[in-house]
Protein backbone atom coordinates (compact mmCIF):
# COMPACT_ATOMS: atom_id res chain seq x y z
CA UNK A 1 0.00 0.00 0.00
CA UNK A 2 1.28 3.39 -0.86
CA UNK A 3 2.07 5.73 1.95
CA UNK A 4 -0.54 8.51 1.90
CA UNK A 5 1.85 11.33 2.93
CA UNK A 6 4.25 10.25 0.22
CA UNK A 7 1.41 10.38 -2.27
CA UNK A 8 0.68 13.96 -1.22
CA UNK A 9 4.33 14.92 -1.63
CA UNK A 10 4.42 13.18 -5.00
CA UNK A 11 1.33 15.04 -6.10
CA UNK A 12 2.74 18.36 -4.98
CA UNK A 13 6.04 17.61 -6.68
CA UNK A 14 4.27 16.69 -9.90
CA UNK A 15 2.19 19.83 -9.65
CA UNK A 16 5.34 21.92 -9.25
CA UNK A 17 7.06 20.14 -12.11
CA UNK A 18 4.05 20.81 -14.29
CA UNK A 19 4.29 24.46 -13.37
CA UNK A 20 7.74 24.63 -14.85
CA UNK A 21 6.35 23.68 -18.21
CA UNK A 22 3.32 25.87 -17.87
CA UNK A 23 2.42 28.98 -19.70
CA UNK A 24 4.16 32.25 -18.71
CA UNK A 25 1.06 33.34 -16.79
CA UNK A 26 1.22 30.29 -14.54
CA UNK A 27 4.91 30.79 -13.99
CA UNK A 28 4.15 34.32 -12.97
CA UNK A 29 1.47 33.08 -10.58
CA UNK A 30 3.96 30.62 -9.13
CA UNK A 31 6.46 33.45 -8.68
CA UNK A 32 3.82 35.47 -6.85
CA UNK A 33 3.06 32.50 -4.59
CA UNK A 34 6.74 32.05 -3.75
CA UNK A 35 7.12 35.77 -3.03
CA UNK A 36 4.06 35.57 -0.80
CA UNK A 37 5.58 32.66 1.14
CA UNK A 38 8.88 34.49 1.56
CA UNK A 39 7.04 37.66 2.57
CA UNK A 40 5.09 35.70 5.16
CA UNK A 41 8.29 34.15 6.56
CA UNK A 42 9.85 37.60 6.75
CA UNK A 43 6.80 38.91 8.59
CA UNK A 44 7.01 35.99 11.02
CA UNK A 45 10.69 36.66 11.64
CA UNK A 46 9.88 40.28 12.27
CA UNK A 47 6.99 39.69 14.66
CA UNK A 48 8.47 36.83 16.66
CA UNK A 49 10.95 39.11 18.39
CA UNK A 50 10.20 42.81 18.06
CA UNK A 51 13.24 43.82 20.08
CA UNK A 52 15.61 41.96 17.78
CA UNK A 53 13.78 43.17 14.69
CA UNK A 54 13.89 46.81 15.81
CA UNK A 55 17.59 46.48 16.64
CA UNK A 56 18.35 45.16 13.17
CA UNK A 57 16.02 47.57 11.41
CA UNK A 58 17.32 50.65 13.24
CA UNK A 59 20.89 49.52 12.56
CA UNK A 60 20.19 49.00 8.86
CA UNK A 61 18.51 52.37 8.70
CA UNK A 62 21.47 54.01 10.37
CA UNK A 63 24.01 52.25 8.14
CA UNK A 64 22.19 53.13 4.95
CA UNK A 65 21.86 56.76 5.93
CA UNK A 66 25.47 56.91 7.10
CA UNK A 67 26.61 55.60 3.70
CA UNK A 68 25.38 58.77 1.97
CA UNK A 69 25.82 61.28 4.79
CA UNK A 70 29.36 62.32 3.84
CA UNK A 71 28.33 63.46 0.35
CA UNK A 72 25.15 65.00 1.77
CA UNK A 73 27.23 67.01 4.26
CA UNK A 74 29.48 68.23 1.46
CA UNK A 75 26.52 69.28 -0.67
CA UNK A 76 25.02 71.13 2.29
CA UNK A 77 28.27 72.84 3.26
CA UNK A 78 29.18 73.95 -0.27
CA UNK A 79 25.64 74.40 -1.54
CA UNK A 80 26.10 71.69 -4.15
CA UNK A 81 28.99 69.82 -5.71
CA UNK A 82 30.38 71.01 -9.06
CA UNK A 83 27.53 71.23 -11.55
CA UNK A 84 25.16 69.56 -9.11
CA UNK A 85 22.93 71.73 -6.94
CA UNK A 86 22.14 70.58 -3.41
CA UNK A 87 18.71 69.10 -4.29
CA UNK A 88 20.21 67.37 -7.34
CA UNK A 89 22.86 65.74 -5.15
CA UNK A 90 20.07 64.68 -2.78
CA UNK A 91 18.17 63.19 -5.74
CA UNK A 92 21.24 61.19 -6.73
CA UNK A 93 21.74 59.94 -3.19
CA UNK A 94 18.07 59.01 -2.91
CA UNK A 95 18.43 57.10 -6.17
CA UNK A 96 21.54 55.31 -4.84
CA UNK A 97 19.74 54.37 -1.63
CA UNK A 98 16.73 53.09 -3.54
CA UNK A 99 18.91 50.86 -5.73
CA UNK A 100 20.66 49.54 -2.65
CA UNK A 101 17.30 49.03 -0.95
CA UNK A 102 15.94 47.03 -3.87
CA UNK A 103 18.92 44.71 -3.60
CA UNK A 104 18.39 44.24 0.12
CA UNK A 105 14.66 43.69 -0.27
CA UNK A 106 14.65 41.34 -3.24
CA UNK A 107 17.94 39.53 -2.94
CA UNK A 108 18.63 38.99 0.73
CA UNK A 109 19.73 35.74 2.39
CA UNK A 110 22.96 35.72 0.38
CA UNK A 111 21.33 35.70 -3.04
CA UNK A 112 22.99 39.05 -3.66
CA UNK A 113 26.22 37.64 -2.20
CA UNK A 114 25.84 34.55 -4.34
CA UNK A 115 29.47 33.43 -3.96
CA UNK A 116 28.74 32.60 -0.32
CA UNK A 117 26.00 30.16 -1.30
CA UNK A 118 28.12 28.66 -4.06
CA UNK A 119 31.30 28.55 -2.00
CA UNK A 120 29.58 26.87 0.92
CA UNK A 121 27.90 24.24 -1.23
CA UNK A 122 24.50 25.64 -0.35
CA UNK A 123 23.41 25.72 -3.97
CA UNK A 124 22.32 22.13 -3.36
CA UNK A 125 19.49 23.54 -1.26
CA UNK A 126 18.31 25.45 -4.30
CA UNK A 127 18.80 22.57 -6.73
CA UNK A 128 16.47 20.25 -4.81
CA UNK A 129 13.62 22.77 -4.90
CA UNK A 130 10.76 21.77 -7.20
CA UNK A 131 11.18 24.79 -9.43
CA UNK A 132 13.87 26.17 -11.73
CA UNK A 133 17.03 27.71 -10.33
CA UNK A 134 16.21 31.15 -11.76
CA UNK A 135 12.86 31.09 -10.00
CA UNK A 136 14.44 30.14 -6.71
CA UNK A 137 17.08 32.87 -7.01
CA UNK A 138 14.43 35.41 -7.88
CA UNK A 139 12.25 34.59 -4.88
CA UNK A 140 14.30 33.09 -2.03
CA UNK A 141 15.82 36.42 -1.03
CA UNK A 142 12.57 38.37 -0.81
CA UNK A 143 12.48 40.31 2.48
CA UNK A 144 9.83 43.00 2.08
CA UNK A 145 9.68 44.03 5.72
CA UNK A 146 13.16 43.63 7.13
CA UNK A 147 14.86 44.67 3.89
CA UNK A 148 13.06 47.97 3.48
CA UNK A 149 15.36 50.04 5.69
CA UNK A 150 17.04 51.48 2.64
CA UNK A 151 14.00 51.84 0.40
CA UNK A 152 12.07 54.13 2.73
CA UNK A 153 14.80 56.76 3.33
CA UNK A 154 15.72 56.54 -0.37
CA UNK A 155 12.15 57.30 -1.40
CA UNK A 156 11.96 60.13 1.14
CA UNK A 157 15.12 61.71 -0.27
CA UNK A 158 13.75 61.38 -3.81
CA UNK A 159 10.43 62.91 -2.80
CA UNK A 160 12.07 65.79 -0.95
CA UNK A 161 14.50 66.58 -3.76
CA UNK A 162 11.78 66.17 -6.37
CA UNK A 163 9.65 68.71 -4.54
CA UNK A 164 12.48 71.22 -4.16
CA UNK A 165 13.53 70.76 -7.77
CA UNK A 166 9.88 71.25 -8.75
CA UNK A 167 10.01 68.13 -10.90
CA UNK A 168 6.79 67.75 -12.76
CA UNK A 169 7.00 64.09 -13.69
CA UNK A 170 5.09 62.91 -16.72
CA UNK A 171 4.02 59.30 -17.08
CA UNK A 172 6.88 58.68 -19.50
CA UNK A 173 9.41 60.26 -17.10
CA UNK A 174 8.13 58.08 -14.25
CA UNK A 175 8.37 55.03 -16.48
CA UNK A 176 11.93 55.94 -17.44
CA UNK A 177 12.82 56.58 -13.79
CA UNK A 178 11.51 53.16 -12.76
CA UNK A 179 13.25 51.56 -15.74
CA UNK A 180 16.55 53.20 -14.76
CA UNK A 181 16.25 52.18 -11.11
CA UNK A 182 15.51 48.59 -12.17
CA UNK A 183 18.42 48.74 -14.62
CA UNK A 184 20.86 50.03 -11.99
CA UNK A 185 19.76 47.27 -9.62
CA UNK A 186 20.23 44.73 -12.42
CA UNK A 187 23.76 45.98 -13.09
CA UNK A 188 24.61 45.70 -9.38
CA UNK A 189 23.19 42.18 -9.20
CA UNK A 190 24.83 41.09 -12.46
CA UNK A 191 28.20 42.38 -11.31
CA UNK A 192 27.86 40.39 -8.10
CA UNK A 193 26.91 37.25 -10.07
CA UNK A 194 29.69 37.68 -12.64
CA UNK A 195 32.32 37.73 -9.90
CA UNK A 196 30.38 35.41 -7.60
CA UNK A 197 30.26 32.67 -10.23
CA UNK A 198 34.01 32.20 -9.74
CA UNK A 199 33.01 30.34 -6.58
CA UNK A 200 31.82 27.47 -8.80
CA UNK A 201 35.46 26.80 -9.67
CA UNK A 202 37.25 28.12 -6.55
CA UNK A 203 34.74 27.79 -3.71
CA UNK A 204 37.08 28.45 -0.82
CA UNK A 205 39.19 31.22 -2.29
CA UNK A 206 36.28 33.18 -3.70
CA UNK A 207 33.58 32.54 -1.13
CA UNK A 208 33.54 36.24 -0.24
CA UNK A 209 34.17 37.65 -3.71
CA UNK A 210 30.56 38.77 -4.28
CA UNK A 211 30.56 40.86 -1.13
CA UNK A 212 33.97 42.35 -1.99
CA UNK A 213 32.94 43.13 -5.57
CA UNK A 214 29.56 44.58 -4.73
CA UNK A 215 31.00 46.34 -1.68
CA UNK A 216 33.36 48.05 -4.10
CA UNK A 217 30.45 49.35 -6.16
CA UNK A 218 28.28 50.25 -3.18
CA UNK A 219 31.06 52.22 -1.50
CA UNK A 220 31.68 54.31 -4.60
CA UNK A 221 28.11 54.73 -5.84
CA UNK A 222 27.14 57.84 -3.79
CA UNK A 223 29.95 59.97 -5.23
CA UNK A 224 29.46 62.32 -8.20
CA UNK A 225 32.02 61.31 -10.81
CA UNK A 226 32.07 64.54 -12.87
CA UNK A 227 35.64 65.55 -12.04
CA UNK A 228 37.31 62.31 -13.15
CA UNK A 229 39.52 61.99 -16.22
CA UNK A 230 38.09 60.39 -19.36
CA UNK A 231 40.12 57.20 -18.90
CA UNK A 232 39.06 56.85 -15.28
CA UNK A 233 35.44 57.56 -16.10
CA UNK A 234 35.48 55.05 -18.95
CA UNK A 235 36.69 52.38 -16.53
CA UNK A 236 33.95 53.26 -14.06
CA UNK A 237 31.32 52.98 -16.80
CA UNK A 238 32.45 49.62 -18.18
CA UNK A 239 34.62 47.19 -16.22
CA UNK A 240 33.52 48.61 -12.89
CA UNK A 241 30.09 50.04 -13.65
CA UNK A 242 29.85 52.38 -10.66
CA UNK A 243 28.71 55.25 -12.86
CA UNK A 244 25.49 53.47 -13.80
CA UNK A 245 24.37 52.81 -10.26
CA UNK A 246 23.35 56.38 -9.45
CA UNK A 247 25.50 59.08 -11.03
CA UNK A 248 24.73 58.69 -14.75
CA UNK A 249 21.03 57.74 -14.49
CA UNK A 250 20.47 60.63 -12.06
CA UNK A 251 22.15 63.00 -14.52
CA UNK A 252 19.99 61.64 -17.32
CA UNK A 253 16.74 61.87 -15.34
CA UNK A 254 17.51 65.39 -14.14
CA UNK A 255 18.30 66.59 -17.64
CA UNK A 256 22.01 67.19 -16.99
CA UNK A 257 22.88 65.01 -19.97
CA UNK A 258 22.45 66.64 -23.36
CA UNK A 259 22.03 63.37 -25.28
CA UNK A 260 18.35 62.69 -26.07
CA UNK A 261 18.71 58.95 -25.49
CA UNK A 262 20.63 59.23 -22.24
CA UNK A 263 17.75 57.75 -20.19
CA UNK A 264 18.06 54.53 -22.18
CA UNK A 265 21.81 54.04 -21.77
CA UNK A 266 21.60 52.52 -18.27
CA UNK A 267 18.92 49.97 -19.30
CA UNK A 268 21.03 49.03 -22.34
CA UNK A 269 24.10 48.49 -20.19
CA UNK A 270 21.95 46.49 -17.75
CA UNK A 271 20.88 44.19 -20.58
CA UNK A 272 24.52 43.61 -21.57
CA UNK A 273 25.62 42.94 -18.01
CA UNK A 274 22.75 40.55 -17.33
CA UNK A 275 23.50 38.55 -20.49
CA UNK A 276 27.14 38.19 -19.40
CA UNK A 277 26.10 37.25 -15.86
CA UNK A 278 23.63 34.60 -17.02
CA UNK A 279 26.18 33.11 -19.41
CA UNK A 280 28.92 32.89 -16.78
CA UNK A 281 26.52 31.52 -14.17
CA UNK A 282 25.34 28.81 -16.60
CA UNK A 283 28.95 27.84 -17.34
CA UNK A 284 29.50 27.60 -13.60
CA UNK A 285 26.40 25.44 -13.19
CA UNK A 286 27.73 23.06 -15.82
CA UNK A 287 31.01 22.80 -13.92
CA UNK A 288 29.11 22.31 -10.67
CA UNK A 289 27.13 19.52 -12.31
CA UNK A 290 30.40 17.65 -12.84
CA UNK A 291 32.15 18.39 -9.56
CA UNK A 292 29.52 19.28 -6.95
CA UNK A 293 30.75 20.74 -3.73
CA UNK A 294 33.24 19.30 -1.29
CA UNK A 295 32.42 21.89 1.33
CA UNK A 296 28.83 21.02 2.14
CA UNK A 297 27.97 19.81 5.59
CA UNK A 298 24.54 18.58 6.51
CA UNK A 299 24.17 21.06 9.35
CA UNK A 300 24.72 23.98 7.05
CA UNK A 301 28.16 25.21 8.03
CA UNK A 302 31.06 25.03 5.68
CA UNK A 303 34.30 23.15 6.20
Amino acid sequence: MKNSSLTAVDAQFKHNLDLMNFEPLNKFNHLLRLWRVQGYLDLMWMTQDWKLFLTYYASDLFLNIAAVTGVLFLAERFDGIGVWTKPQVTFMLGYAMLVRGIMETLFGYNIFSISRRLGRGQLDHTLVQPHPVWMALLTEGFMPFSGSASIIPGLLLLLWSGTVLALDPTISWLFLALLNVAASATILLSFSFIWGSLAFWAPRATEEISSSASGLLRTLMPFPLDGLSFAMLSGLMTFLPVGFLAWYPARALLGLESDAWSELLTPTVAAIFSIIAVWIFKQGLKAYGRTGSQRYLSFGHRR
Binding site: F78, I81, G82, F223, L225, D226, G227, L228
Partner: peptide, 10 residues
Amino acid sequence: IILMSLWQMI
Protein backbone atom coordinates in the same frame (compact mmCIF):
# COMPACT_ATOMS: atom_id res chain seq x y z
CA ILE B 1 41.07 59.09 -6.53
CA ILE B 2 37.35 59.84 -6.51
CA LEU B 3 37.60 61.78 -3.24
CA MET B 4 40.50 63.83 -4.57
CA SER B 5 38.65 64.64 -7.78
CA LEU B 6 35.70 65.65 -5.62
CA TRP B 7 37.87 68.06 -3.66
CA GLN B 8 39.31 69.48 -6.85
CA MET B 9 35.79 70.05 -8.11
CA ILE B 10 34.69 71.74 -4.88
